[in-house]
Amino acid sequence: MNLRGIAAIYIFEMARTGRTLMQSIVAPVLSTSLYFVVFGAAIGSRITEIEGVSYGAFIVPGLIMLTVLTQSVMNASFGIYFPRFTGTIFEILSAPISFLEIVLGYVGAAATKSIVLGLIILATSFLFVPLHIAHPVWMLVFLVLTSAAFSLLGFIIGVWADGFERLQIIPLLVITPLTFLGGTFYSTSVLSPFWQKVTLFNPLVYLISGFRWSFFEIADVHVGISLGMTIFFLVICLAVVWWIFKTGYRLKN
């Protein structure tokens, strides 16, 4: 195992974050605070409670997920796309380091960033709403698994993309809408039975529901299913990444 190699990539990626602290940390925290103000104040004055939880508190897990998902994908995809774009990837490919180790370095760094960001947003939300976390350990488990899975997804997108537009497309056109439709700002139980069925095809419903359960013990789907789906998604992403390195797709041909 080339631990030093993993560390080198990880440190390199974290240093990149350090240089772009404004975009990486400040901007997402600011936009989340705006959501609190706008949604919490505007909608919260009409919907006071959902299943016994104040509306302001109810949206916290969803908002954290929204940021974690988009940032994971963006960070990880940029992290691997940029060396491909500049050509510096040659060094990674010529180093005595396995695909798993490369992924650990890049995805580990992107996931770390997302987790830290998620926790910062969580801390920020304490400023706006009274919060009680029922299962902090499960909360962390969901946060870590989700960050890892979506950083892997980002890595895949970064390998697949052949331009900067493609890097932006998935977070903007897929992740963000699916998060909004996945119950960030409402419980899917308010929807008609038909639309409730449709939402079950949205994988993000499971992540948000599970994460919310760890806070308030309320969920749209059973927490076991949420956990299963999260792990399932992680495994699929791992399989795709493994295939990428096995075939050299877009990297070695």
Partner: peptide, 13 residues
């Protein structure tokens, strides 16, 4: 930083 990175990447202390 970049030279140190290269050494680490190749697994050397």
């Amino acid at each position: 930083a970049t030279v140190t990175f290269s050494r680490g990447l190749f697994g050397k202390a």
